[in-house]
Simulated assay, not measured.
Amino acid sequence: MITQLQYPERSKIIYPDDNGEPMSDNTEQFRLIVWIKENLELLFARVADVFVAGNLLWYPVEGNNKLAQAPDVLVAFGRPKRYRGSYQQWNEDNIPPQVVFEILSPGNRLTPMIQKFKFYERYGVEEYYLYNPEQVDLTIWQRRDQELEAVESADGWVSPRLGVRFQLSETALEIFGPNGAPFVSFVELAQLREQAELRAEEEQQRAEQEQQRAEQERQRAEQERQRAEQERQRAEQAETLLEQERSRSEALEARLREMGIDPNLL
């Protein structure tokens, strides 16, 4: 008698949203994960079909809830922005995340990191970034056919998918967007916004002061015009009085002559 193995229906398989592992082992690792994830979110905020997530479980094969990895940051091009408890690839038009980031911590061990690398290589990652903050070391792999091959120099590398540039200083990793603007933290972004708002307020105040000075100049010009008009009117009045006086004098002289009196002898 042959006993057939009973497999659970795929629709009944549960794909946990949590693998029980912490998102990070220390504050620096957490800071870097959030820094990269949030800046990539901002970079693609206006692109509807680019999905960015941090520490999200990725299941590449339907029916296997044991096969999964949770990259520190993943980017999936061609997928909409929406809520996900996990990234189930068969529900995503079978599109794998093309870009993943991992931030090393003292708790990372060699064997799990090798397993992650093989997972990313097997299931379609195009760009894999592994950063060690203690050593300020960035390793980059890029897909060549079916394999992930190490990039010769990470310093100055520009991601084909993301369009961002990676720079290594003596103390830190720096990332620059396609427009050359550096990735910043939330605090730095808030400070930049405050500075921009302050500059805008200062510009508005300067514009208002200029407007006030222009209004004052207009008022002074109007006052000068009014004074000039008053002087002109006074001059016209004086000329009129002088003309009237001249007319009366001429009329008087004419009357005296009619009376036979020479006005020059008076």
Rank of each mutant, 00 (worst) to 15 (best):
P96E: 04
I36R: 10
V34E: 03
N19F: 01
N19P: 06
S185T: 15
N64F: 14
A221T: 09
G78Q: 07
E210P: 06
L43M: 07
R220E: 11
K118A: 13
P133E: 00
F30R: 10
E121I: 11
R220S: 02
E201L: 13
L252D: 00
E197A: 12
T3N: 13
R144L: 06
N64D: 15
N55S: 13
A181V: 03
V151W: 06
N91H: 12
E243M: 00
E174V: 03
P80R: 10
G107Y: 04
F166D: 12
P96V: 02
L168I: 13
I261N: 04
Q191R: 15
R220D: 05
E92S: 08
A45I: 09
L43Y: 08
L67D: 01
L32A: 10
Y131N: 07
R144N: 11
F119L: 12
L67W: 04
V187C: 06
K116P: 00
F30N: 12
I95M: 10
Q135V: 04
R46S: 09
P106T: 08
K66Y: 14
N26Y: 00
I33T: 14
E197C: 02
Q88C: 13
V158T: 15
M113N: 06
R31N: 08
P160L: 09
R255S: 11
F183G: 08
R199F: 05
E239F: 05
Q230C: 05
V61A: 00
L162I: 11
V61F: 00
V99H: 00
N108A: 11
D18G: 02
A150L: 11
T27A: 13
P16T: 03
K37E: 05
Q115C: 03
E126L: 03
K116I: 05
E127Y: 11
E245Q: 14
R10I: 11
P60H: 09
I103T: 08
K12G: 00
Q4G: 02
Y7M: 13
E149M: 12
N91L: 13
I14E: 13
F30D: 05
R246T: 00
Q211I: 02
V158Y: 01
A235C: 05
Q167T: 11
Y129R: 08
L74K: 03
N108K: 07
F117K: 07
T3M: 05
S11N: 07
Q4Y: 12
